[in-house]
């Protein structure tokens, strides 16, 4: 399983990298950590004529927390996130979700930008980006554009990134204190892609009612998605067992997963409901009466 013949360049600056991409048109491929791209090359599922390694570009490796939000450079690795105690405080949902990503060695090289650009429908980072209204900065020959995660992802393994564009950073809105949240997923083994997953958060007003509910799901469609119908049920309600069960029922109806070798569609649909129940119960700190 040797890689197909290809060229490799390692530009020192972002403009150089973009220029290189522009020169090669669609035949170039950006590589950073390479943890998704290298297996595809090994299976010869991709055969770019040149790899543009952005791994040594300056300024894409930082995590900064400011009044505007949490900015995560595209080259930030899972390991960087895992070891950043401040970030874990600043965005506990992100930290909880990223704990499920792949394995130790892959976490040491896999990057936030790479995961977003690879756009696996079951990946955690795109799921968090969609759930949390993240904004992505993309730089190309013609300038810089800023898109929401939802606009960025166009389908399974597909994004709006043009041939000469590089995703440089992702901004998550600041996390509110006392926010209720949970992340739940089920994978066949630790580190595998999830059969389904749920990222959930909402805020509580003075009356103890939920608002600003964000419910995002992974592994049940060709890309991560929010479930507005579920959010509508939660907003303005006191989160109790009835509300949770109602939300889960709506969630099951809101998704239309496909059959694949790992699970039939009906399983993923039902699993999503179960995971949502568990996530919301945990977020609300209540115990649901277990059926079955």
């Amino acid at each position: 399983m040797k890689l197909p013949p290809l060229d490799y360049i390692c530009p020192a600056t972002l403009p150089e990298a973009i220029a290189a991409l522009a020169v090669h048109g669609g035949n170039a491929k950006v590589i950073a950590g390479g943890q998704s791209l290298m297996p595809m090359l090994a299976f010869r599922l991709a055969a770019p004529s040149v790899l543009v390694d952005i791994g040594r570009l300056p300024d894409l490796k930082s995590i900064s927390i400011s009044a505007e939000g949490i900015d995560i450079g595209a080259l930030v690795t899972w390991r960087d996130i895992e070891r950043d105690a401040q970030l874990a405080q600043a965005h506990p949902l992100l930290a909880a979700a990223i704990a499920h990503v792949a394995h130790y060695q892959v976490r040491n090289r896999g990057t936030v930008g790479g995961s977003m650009a690879h756009a696996d429908p079951a990946a955690e980072m795109p799921g968090i980006a969609v759930t949390c209204d993240a904004m992505l900065t993309i730089v190309g020959s013609t300038g810089t554009r800023i898109l929401s995660a939802n606009e960025f992802l166009t389908g399974g393994l597909s994004t709006v990134l043009g041939a000469d564009e590089i995703l440089t950073s992702i901004r998550l809105p600041l996390w509110k204190k006392a926010r209720r949240w949970a992340f739940e997923e089920l994978a066949r083994r630790r580190g595998d892609f999830a059969l389904a997953g749920v990222a959930a958060f909402y805020d509580i007003d003075a009356q103890g009612l939920a608002h600003n509910a964000h419910i995002g799901v992974i592994g049940v469609a060709d890309r991560p998605m929010r479930l507005p119908g579920v959010e509508a049920i939660l907003d303005g309600r006191r989160i109790d067992a009835d509300v949770i069960l109602q939300a889960a029922a709506v969630a099951r109806d809101a998704v239309d997963p496909a059959d694949d070798i790992h699970a039939e569609a009906a399983y993923r649909r039902d699993l999503l409901g179960v995971l949502l129940e568990r996530a919301l119960a945990r977020a609300a700190n209540i115990t649901l009466p277990e059926a079955a």
């Binding site: 009906a266 399983y267 079955a292």
Partner: peptide, 11 residues
């Protein structure tokens, strides 16, 4: 005995 298979049997 995969989770989806057991789930299907239970259903």
């Amino acid at each position: 005995l995969t989770p989806p298979r057991l789930w299907r049997l239970i259903k």
